[in-house]
């Protein structure tokens, strides 16, 4: 937004010069007037973040927003960081990191040691998406309760059958309730026709 900041292309080139062999790519953003974002491999994510924060020309000292995104199609989870500089008043730079897959390779280095503002937001991404942040000081569920098992923001999350309950259940809700409470769903004996 602010023309004073280097373009993501320049930042990528400087990061590659600083960390040779790092996996750093530009992700285009086709929205009108939007800038591409920087996707950094997990191996160099922490070092790249420290570089972005401490470099004199960038000084991205403020991590505004941490977002988890689930991509079942390519098959990975993604974490998006929106970085700004309060010192130099520019930004944003959009930084992304991707997990190996959605099942067992879901670890990413935590950026909470770099920007404290990630503390609760990374906990939220862990809570709702299941990304495990290595090196987070206190990685617990944030919004769901501790005993909760699943990750509700994933695209393939299926809500439990007792998710909805109505006093006079019908149709789809009644079918769900029957799965959960078969006894209650059994039909009551019909009134006998002799009685008037």
């Amino acid at each position: 937004m602010n023309p004073a900041m280097e373009t993501p292309e320049q930042i990528r080139d400087r990061l590659l010069a600083r960390f040779p062999g790092a996996e750093i790519s530009l992700v285009p953003n086709p929205a009108p007037g939007a800038q591409p974002s920087l996707c950094v491999g997990a191996a160099h994510l922490r070092e790249a973040a420290v570089f972005l924060r401490d470099d004199d020309a960038l000084r991205l000292d403020y991590c505004s927003n941490v977002t988890g995104i689930d991509w079942p199609k390519p098959g990975h989870l993604e974490v998006v960081y929106h970085l700004y500089s309060m010192a130099l008043r520019h930004g944003p730079l959009v930084l992304r990191a991707r997990t190996g897959n959605r099942a067992d390779l879901v670890s990413l280095p935590s950026l909470t040691p770099v920007w404290r503002s990630c503390e609760f937001q990374e906990r939220e991404v862990f809570d709702l998406y299941g990304v495990v942040f290595e090196g987070h000081p206190d990685l617990r569920r944030l919004l769901m309760w501790d005993e909760f098992k699943d990750f509700p923001m994933r695209k393939d999350y299926v809500e439990p059958p007792d998710y909805e309950w109505e006093p006079t259940a019908h149709d789809a809700v009644a079918a769900k309730a029957a799965l959960q409470h078969p006894a209650a769903a059994a039909p009551s004996p019909a009134p006998s026709p002799e009685k008037t």
Partner: peptide, 24 residues
Amino acid sequence: RPKAGESYGRIEGPKGEIGFYLVS
């Protein structure tokens, strides 16, 4: 139906930076 893309909009709310990040 926005075309594929993403955007982040933020304003100075009374409590701080209120922002919305959308991916289409």
